[in-house]
């Protein structure tokens, strides 16, 4: 027999932000692989439309304003 605890999880707390920062500071997280591609602000609308066309091919799109 099961006695499951089912919980929801919504958004995040300041403690979660601190935990992620500490984690990224301490491990070799594959940032470059998680970010599928980086585009300019001018190309951001097209990138969003392309993601909508092929959602399975994208993990994360970044937009650089530099």
């Amino acid at each position: 027999m099961k006695e499951l605890d089912i919980r929801g999880s919504r958004n995040a707390t300041p403690e979660d932000f601190e935990a992620v920062i500490a984690h990224l500071e301490s491990v070799a997280f594959p940032t470059d692989e998680v970010i599928t591609k980086t585009v300019s602000l001018e190309d951001a609308p097209a990138a969003l439309a392309a993601w909508s066309e092929n959602p399975g091919e994208i993990t994360k799109i970044h937009i650089t304003l530099d």
Binding site: A12, T13, V20, L24, K60
Partner: peptide, 19 residues
């Protein structure tokens, strides 16, 4: 800056782990 922009989406999963 790329890592900083990645923090917020990762917090969502960290919160679930905390839950």
């Amino acid at each position: 800056l790329a890592e900083m922009a990645l923090v917020e989406p990762l917090t969502v999963g960290f919160h679930a782990v905390s839950r």
